[in-house]
Nucleic acid binder design. Sequence first.
DNA 1: ATCTTTCATAAAGGCTACGTTATGGATCCT
DNA 2: AGGATCCATAACGTAGCCTTTATGAAAGAT
Lengths: 118, 118
Amino acid sequence: MALPGSIAAGAHDLSVHFEGLANPTRLMIVERLATTPELRVSELAVYCQVSQPLLSWHLRILRKAQVITTRREGREVFCSLDREAIAEHQSQFTRLIAFGGEQLAEPPTTNSITEGSS
Amino acid sequence: MALPGSIAAGAHDLSVHFEGLANPTRLMIVERLATTPELRVSELAVYCQVSQPLLSWHLRILRKAQVITTRREGREVFCSLDREAIAEHQSQFTRLIAFGGEQLAEPPTTNSITEGSS
DNA sequence: ATCTTTCATAAAGGCTACGTTATGGATCCT
DNA sequence: AGGATCCATAACGTAGCCTTTATGAAAGAT
């Protein structure tokens, strides 16, 4: 799907990230995880009132979307928000709608004649 | 629907908003619209290299997600980013992951004695 | 070792998103 | 008027998301 003037890898990552947030149940998970550093999978399942396999499936999507991270301790799995990755994606999107996504990972070549800021 | 001030409705709105951004083609539309105040539908279709009906369908989703707005002038339809709504949703999400969406104005009670753990 | 708890995965079905093609309505042009 | 352009919608097929039920692997408890 790569296209003209493309944002390429960045755009794909971004759409995957947003896809992770594009569901009420997953948004509920995010909201719950925002109130505490870590939560076990079973606790999240109770809170969201969904079956354990279904929650596991949602967690997989959230992990792929870089919204959460999981840590295994014995037979339990602890989930937490990936605040760093979320902030990174947010800032990427902000840049996208600010300049049009022209420069996503462009080194400062300082070749600018018309540069309004720094 | 869309009761003003409702938290539940807000969460739903948020997932709909993110769903609008959870697609490479739609993200490309957003990127393109970020570089100019307005664009016609046909121009967007050429840029994204998708058929006109398909683009029309994507635009409908973006409109419902409150990502863009459209304005009709004669037989042409001009699209533009709904920057205000986007900023509103972004800030809503930021609040969601910052405090969990519950306490918004909690003074520093400095009363950290009881920290329950189970 | 046996049983229980915790989580992941497989299989299967319903529902929706995505995409193409065809058509129609509205506006502009001649 | 007739034709051309711009956009929306309908009909339809495919692919993928969401959900349930059943099963399995791994660690802790007895």
